[in-house]
């Protein structure tokens, strides 16, 4: 029973929403809007669960003095400080302490993490981009041509480079992307049907 009822709810809702997509009747639209409201409500209920899990794990780390427990202390302090400041009046106005923390600590930290990609891409490209066989060589040459064609220096060397880069992006790249996307689309539709039919149950934590 514990498993059947959720599957039944999923099947009925899934079937009704599939029908709703094709049916523009006011009743169908009202049902759909209602479903959207419920999704938001249920989604918000899950947030405290996540915060509870995070706080519990970090507290445990501190209590047991596990490796890296100092970071756990920083995480907890950051969480509560930002949470507290979020309740202060006018916290979202420019120049508030909350906004200063956001602008001068949070944004630079996030941007730094993203910028690590440049270093990692260079290192991964150096290590992995090898002309091991014909196919790998084609990938290698295409990558170099696209990289050259995508920056102004490619144009400065020869106007043909941007054209080659555009051709690679618009034809071979797109053909491969489309093939994968069609497969993904069918895969997604198949999974959706399996869920509606109750065949796929992994999303509920059991097979």
């Amino acid at each position: 029973m514990k498993r059947r009822i959720p599957i039944l709810i999923v099947s009925i809702t899934g079937f009704l929403l599939t029908v709703q997509y094709f049916c523009p009747h006011p009743y169908s639209e009202a049902f759909y809007n209602n479903a959207l409201d419920w999704l938001v409500i249920i989604g918000i209920f899950a947030m405290p669960l996540g915060i509870y899990s995070m706080v519990r794990i970090q507290f445990q780390k501190v209590a047991r003095q596990e490796s890296g427990w100092g970071f756990a202390v920083i995480s907890l302090i950051s969480l509560f400080v930002m949470l507290g400041l979020g309740y202060t009046p006018k916290c979202l106005e420019a120049g508030s302490f909350f906004m200063k923390l956001f602008e001068f600590i949070y944004i630079p930290i996030q941007a730094t993490m993203f910028s690590l990609l440049a270093f990692y891409i260079a290192s991964a490209a150096y290590r992995a981009f090898r002309a091991r066989n014909l196919l790998a060589s084609i990938v290698l040459v295409s990558a170099i041509l696209v990289m050259l064609g995508r920056v102004p220096i490619g144009m400065a060397i020869h106007p043909i480079f941007p054209e080659i880069a555009d051709w690679i992006m618009n034809f071979p790249n797109m053909a491969a992307q489309r093939a994968i996307n069609i497969g993904l689309g069918l895969g997604a539709a198949s999974t959706a049907i399996k869920i509606v039919l109750g065949v796929e149950r992994s999303y509920m934590g059991f097979e």
Partner: peptide, 24 residues
């Protein structure tokens, strides 16, 4: 910013070529 991107692209191309010469 494109000035920076220019040079980083060139560097990655150079690194890839050097890596392949060494590999070969």
């Amino acid at each position: 910013g494109m000035n920076v991107q220019n040079f980083v692209h060139i560097l990655i191309i150079a690194l890839t070529i050097i890596g392949n010469i060494a590999f070969f």
